[in-house]
Amino acid sequence: MEKIKIITDSTADLPEYILKKYDIEVLPLIINFGEESYRDGIDIDIYTLFNKMENSSIFPATAQVNPQVFLDCYSSYIKKGYKIISIHLSSKMSGTYQSACIAKETLKSEDIVVIDSMNVTSGLGIQVIKAAKLKGAGLGIKEIENEVKKISPHIKSTLAFNSLDNLVRGGRLSKTAGVIGNILGIKIIVEVKDGEMSVVDKVRGSKKVLRSMLTYLDQRGIKSAEDLILLHVGEVDILDSLRENLNEKKLDFIECEVGCTVGVHSGSGACGVFFVEDY
């Protein structure tokens, strides 16, 4: 049986118990506050981040994992006889995937598989967990790569934000979407589609937001409760109702909290569901 190491980046937003359970290595993206730099989840946590954002005129910038970090990490595991599955946030959102590819090319190793998740946060997390379970089932790195790539286009999401300001400031949504989301109590519901943030629906009021999200879940259908993640950060008025609805449907799900890199863009109030659609 192959010795395989699963590697991802900090935007997977997986809880510590999952990382320990599946022995997953996480490489941190960087949060830059002016001249200060922090490793996501190591030097700064999400609540410290929000506190700094509230008390600073500087809007933080996020930076990719650089190739040297990947090179050092890959080299250490290859020397120990491991093969590597490295899965990362969408190449349309960050250069992290490209950094991983550069490191693989530098090492010229066939024992490293790098996957562009075309997703972020829990959409990436679902793929990482899938890879870890397949590793546990005894599959090789090429088989794992094929299986992860099969589910990747079928990962769906529905996300609600208290404010779209950070998504717009961070370049994740258009200014037009942000303006609409800030007038007349209109709420914009977002998904990750083709590796980028995309507007799904525009509704007014929290009850309609919840209804729209639940309708989306019902229409897509959930393939397996094993591939279902409830993601949130801060106070969101529909979170309890969303959680209650998933419990009523007797769906098991992992609950995750947004990390710092994603939190820069989401702001302090967001929640949503990531899942593999029934295909």
Rank of each mutant, 00 (worst) to 15 (best):
M1Q: 08
M1K: 14
K5L: 08
I18K: 12
L19G: 08
L19V: 12
K20L: 08
K21F: 02
I24G: 03
E25Y: 01
V26F: 12
P28E: 04
I30P: 00
E35N: 14
E36P: 01
Y38Q: 01
R39N: 12
R39G: 01
I44S: 05
D45R: 03
Y47T: 11
L49Q: 08
N55M: 01
N55Q: 11
S57D: 15
S57P: 00
T62V: 06
A63R: 10
V65T: 10
N66T: 09
Q68N: 13
F70C: 01
Y74S: 02
S75W: 04
Y82A: 06
K83H: 14
I84R: 02
I85Q: 09
S86P: 00
I87K: 03
L89R: 07
T96E: 06
Q98E: 13
I102T: 14
A103M: 12
K104P: 07
E110S: 14
D111C: 04
I115H: 07
S117W: 11
N119V: 06
T121M: 11
A132L: 03
A132H: 07
G138R: 10
E147N: 12
E147P: 02
E147K: 13
K149R: 15
H154W: 10
I155E: 02
S157N: 06
G178H: 12
I180V: 15
K187V: 05
E191I: 02
G195P: 02
E196S: 13
E196T: 11
M197W: 05
S198P: 00
K202W: 04
K202Q: 14
V203G: 09
L214I: 15
Q219F: 11
G221N: 10
L228F: 10
L230I: 07
H232Q: 14
V233A: 03
G234T: 11
E235T: 13
E235M: 11
D237V: 10
I238R: 05
S241K: 14
E244S: 14
E244Q: 13
I254K: 03
E255P: 12
C256S: 15
C260R: 03
V262G: 08
H265I: 10
H265Q: 08
G272A: 09
V273K: 05
D278C: 04
